[in-house]
Design a protein around this nucleic acid. Structure first.
Length: 304
DNA sequence: ATACAAACCCTGAAGCTGGT
DNA sequence: ACCAGCTTCAGGGTTTGTAT
């Protein structure tokens, strides 16, 4: 039986049974009486594939490689701003591309053309050419974005950057041993195993091959910039909205100067950069005695 | 007007590290 | 070997911006 708090997901996110889980979540949000238990499915309702639960996790995953629900979430993640940064490729467009058989994996995206795109709902000439332009741009993004976009378990933005910085090429990463992976700081046995498993899979290796053929550059390392490293050793957390820049821009500005950016305040945090309407991190910062910078002070620190 | 996508915050789960 | 503290990952909800 599925109860409140139980989560049923496929790779990188989406619920295998979105409707049921959403119902559970909204009941919890409304704080209403005890929800009635739902029957736990034994097959993925989207594709009837097998479900897998590893270890003690209350998390089930569809293990069917061609499950459309999984494919949809993987494509969405691949295109997202923090991965390949393909603007304009969202949920509904992806659903249509899968439906039309135009996107069976990441590499297929690079074979799209204006004609095919214009056949889709709510896609005109403008959005079609915008998207093609974005896809073209994404061919030369930094390697870590691709590593992140692949959707390997436990490999998000941060770990992808570590991996890109530690291995010279995607080929070196693909052929790395568990030992080599664990030698990277902050990577332990579980993450190392997830990475190795992914790259040992035949289909995944083929996918990388296809992406290379589609014209992805796989170059541009994380950027050991020649700029000064004056923030080296300092840890920042950004909260609230900044007026002159997005949080992403603020983050990369800090990283360029050798600083580290994390998401929650602890005693190890050097500075909290607080914009408009800061969240709970601001309270935590006062508690921990962390120095708080407003946007103006932050810009001064950056030397802007 | 409507549909879709982006940006943002918050939060829970789980992995990693270092101290005991 | 175990635990505490810290960090990352990733989902949910809301608000804002843009194309049809």
């Amino acid at each position: 039986d599925l109860r409140v708090g139980d989560i049923v997901v496929v790779e990188k996110g989406e619920d295998v049974i979105p409707k049921v889980v959403k119902a559970v979540v909204s009941r919890r949000a409304r704080g209403s009486a005890a929800p009635k238990p739902y029957k736990m499915p034994t097959r993925c309702p989207e594709c009837s594939g097998s479900l897998d639960r590893s270890g003690d996790e209350v998390v089930w995953r569809c293990v069917n490689a061609s499950c459309p629900a999984m494919l949809s979430r993987r494509l969405l993640h691949f295109a997202s701003r923090r991965a390949m940064n393909i603007e304009g490729l969202g949920e509904s467009l992806i659903a249509q591309l899968i439906e039309a058989g135009l996107a069976r994996d990441f590499a297929d995206l690079y074979n799209l053309d204006v004609g095919a795109l214009e056949q889709l709902d709510r896609v005109g000439n403008k959005s079609a050419s915008n998207l093609l332009n974005e896809l073209q741009k994404s061919k030369s993004v930094e390697v870590w974005r691709l590593i992140h976009g692949l959707g390997i378990r436990h490999v998000g933005e941060g770990v992808a950057q570590l991996l890109a910085a530690s291995f010279n090429s995607i080929d070196a990463l693909m052929d790395s041993s568990i030992k080599e992976l664990e030698a990277v700081p902050e990577i332990g046995p579980i993450v190392a195993q997830a990475v190795q498993r992914f790259f040992q899979d035949r289909d995944n290796r083929l996918l990388i091959q296809n992406l290379k053929m589609a014209g992805l550059a796989f170059t541009g390392s994380i950027g050991t910039s020649t700029a000064s490293q004056k923030l080296s050793g300092l840890t920042f957390v950004i909260t609230g909205a900044l007026s002159g820049m997005t949080r992403g821009e603020a983050k990369s500005a800090i990283q360029k100067l050798g600083g580290k950016v994390t998401t929650s305040v602890s005693r190890k945090t050097s500075f909290l950069v607080a914009g408009e309407e800061p969240g709970g991190n601001a309270d935590k910062a006062r508690e921990c005695g962390t120095s708080i910078l407003d946007e103006e002070a932050f810009r001064k620190l950056l030397g802007q």
